[in-house]
Computed example of a mutant assay.
Amino acid sequence: MLLALSPRVLLPSILLAICLFTFWRPDHIARQTAVEAVDVAVSDKRIAFSIDDAPRGVGAYLEAGERPKLLMEAMKTAGIEQAVFFVNPGRVTDNDGDEATILAYAEAGHLLANHTADHNRLSDVSVATYLADIDEAEKWLKGKPNYRPWFRFPYLDEGGKNKAKRDAIRKGLKKRGLMNGYVTVDASDWHLEDLALKASKAGQLMDWNAMGELFVESYVQSAEFSDDLARRTLDRAPVQMVLLHETDLAAMFIDDLAAALKKKGWTIVSADEAYRDPIAHMEPDTDFADGTRTQMLAAERNVGNRWYQRNDQKVAKKLFAERVLRE
């Protein structure tokens, strides 16, 4: 049975239907989907921070003792609530104040992990010597606040071409309950620091602002490069892990770096979140065990263009000379 509707009832109904169709028409849906896709693309760019070689010697810019306080303040400003410091306890003595510095990092909310006691390169020592170096560091670290059972290879040297040595250390880490603290984003800040130290000792004038720009630019480029490499290799975006060192450059410019990364759509996450990512447990089987986790995974899977160019010391030295020394 059909109901007869008066024009006064029918007209508002028709107008409502037109409005609903206009609002929910396919091109509106397409636009909404596009916006959601952009949001997902931005939100999956996650990045965490790690700092190696703590405690480290005096740098080119700051007075002795200034670096730790400035570094902690800069990370707080940057919104880096939880970085991980990979510690070399063999550098800590009873009267140098370094233990207090390491504990201050932990008290500020950051994590402590193993970087060997004396920073040996695996390719240069025996398996027994290397494992003893790890054990010595563990003795110092265990019981410290915010300790994590993670290990970072000095120089990112996991045995080079010696697969037997690589596998022996992997087995030794598992036996000790230690996870390989992977890295993905590297721009050789240690090399920039070395160049600055040499320039300072030689009495050369350096452009402080240009140094900061070079540092930030290089690490942002490295993050974008590693993100692309990971997507080409794994078909997804793992949490990227930045490799810095406890240098004057990190203390002076880490907040600028964090701000620049955020402008590129990166979200800063904790080291704990990073090492929960599946990439943390991958063990690439490559002919040469050295470099970042993304580089080695790409090598294992024959993905091309694996090397960020500014990790080439000749390239970095030329940029430093042109932009910082203005030669």
Rank of each mutant, 00 (worst) to 15 (best):
L62H: 12
G172N: 12
G265Y: 02
L112D: 15
T22V: 12
A210S: 07
N95T: 15
A230M: 12
D186F: 06
E224Y: 03
E300N: 08
N120T: 04
A274S: 14
M241P: 01
D167I: 01
M1A: 15
A4Q: 10
K174D: 15
T233Q: 00
I268N: 12
I51F: 13
A106N: 01
R148I: 10
G79P: 00
V303G: 03
A4G: 00
D277S: 12
I29L: 14
S6M: 11
E138S: 03
A132I: 02
L173N: 07
V9H: 09
D189Y: 04
V185C: 11
P284F: 03
A258S: 09
F320H: 02
R293W: 09
W307M: 07
D53A: 12
W266C: 02
A280P: 00
N305P: 00
G90A: 06
G109H: 02
R310W: 14
F151N: 09
A54R: 07
T33S: 14
D272I: 02
D133W: 07
V269W: 01
F21M: 11
A64H: 14
E99T: 09
A113Q: 07
A164Q: 11
L10W: 08
S123D: 01
Y308I: 03
E322D: 15
M241N: 06
T116I: 09
L214F: 13
A196R: 02
I102F: 06
P26Q: 11
R276V: 11
H191K: 04
I18R: 03
V127M: 05
Q313E: 14
I18T: 03
A113R: 00
Y155M: 08
R326C: 05
G159Y: 06
P145E: 06
S188G: 04
R152C: 08
K69V: 15
A60Q: 07
P55V: 05
L249C: 08
F153P: 00
Q32H: 02
H245D: 15
T33Q: 10
S270V: 04
A83S: 03
D27K: 00
D186V: 05
L70I: 13
D272V: 01
D39F: 05
D290C: 05
D248S: 13
D94N: 12
W307D: 13
G109N: 00
G160L: 02
T22I: 09
I47Q: 10
G65H: 10
K161T: 14
R176H: 03
D135W: 07
L112H: 12
K163Q: 14
P68K: 10
D52Y: 09
S222R: 12
L249V: 08
N180P: 05
S126H: 07
L156Q: 13
Q313L: 07
D235F: 06
K175W: 05
K317H: 00
G57Y: 09
L234T: 06
A64V: 13
V84T: 11
M252G: 02
K45S: 10
